[in-house]
Amino acid sequence: MKGWTHASQGARMSVRRRFSWDQFSAVATLIPSLILLGVFVYGFIVWTGYVSLTNWNSFIPNFSFAGLQNYINVFGTFRFQSDLRNIVVFTALFIIGCLIVGMGLALLIDQRVRAEGLFRSIFIFPMAISFVVTGVIWSWILNPGTGVNLVLKAFGWKTLPSWFLSTTIVPNITLGQIQVGIPLALLAVLIAAVWQMSGFAMAVYLAGLRGISDDIKEAARIDGAGAVRMFWSIILPQLKSTTTTIVIILSAASLKVFGLIYAMTGPGQEFVTDMPSLNMFQTTFQGDQFAQGAAIAIVLLLLLAVFIIPYLISTLRQDSSS
């Protein structure tokens, strides 16, 4: 083995020479994934961007230049305007919900409870289930006619919630073709989504909590900080980078959400639970309007970039400074 002889002669080898070997092996390791990523991720992003500017809106490929016409068409539809409202509402509430529930669970588990491992597993378990399964189960639980409403009815509730079938939008401000606000139907989907992903937030928070030095907590305690003060002034600031990580990962998951909606509600009446990803799938593969589907995909990508790029820049800065 050539590599072995080189390494064993390490003492005689110049520093510079060994360094170049390291560089070479690093590059050799990265090349396959760089090629695959280059073709299958970035290559197809460019291709999708190109298709979104063409007239390819049927089975017959038509690459004549359409300018921004597809974007204009897409933004002009009731459906896509609803999608944008839904994705913003969903992402914001999903992240807030997961952060609060995850933090709560992490704080509880951090109290050195008995059978900690068991509780940790129980809370994180939903994450192991696929979104489709979650969607089907929660669509049964929240089905207005058969699910949890039967329990509420037994407790004497008069007006039962219609969950994901509701078309009510609060506060209901007309903007463009649609009503802007929080579609109540989305709350039902949010319950399922938060149920699934808050365990993840808990696990990351727990690691963060365990990383806070006992010295700081001890010092705060000696200074007379109570539990509430300790949380707001010591623990929460120490968890800032943990929170950022959770927000980034959850926002990526949220913007791409498809399986949960597809299995649980579909686009919903008046598109109250529709998402850009669902719209893109149906436009592209059921309507065969490839250029318009590509336009939706690009808008979705830009939405993701809003979250991911600042994060990448800040991590790169941290890397180069350390």
Binding site: M1, G3, A7, S25, L30, P32, S33, L36
Partner: peptide, 22 residues
């Protein structure tokens, strides 16, 4: 040793990636 390992890792990575796309 190092180089040999790197090659192996590279090959394994390439195979793993091709498996995921296949």
């Amino acid at each position: 040793m190092k180089f040999g390992n790197a090659l192996k890792t590279g090959a394994a990575l390439a195979i793993a990636l091709s498996l995921t796309t296949a």
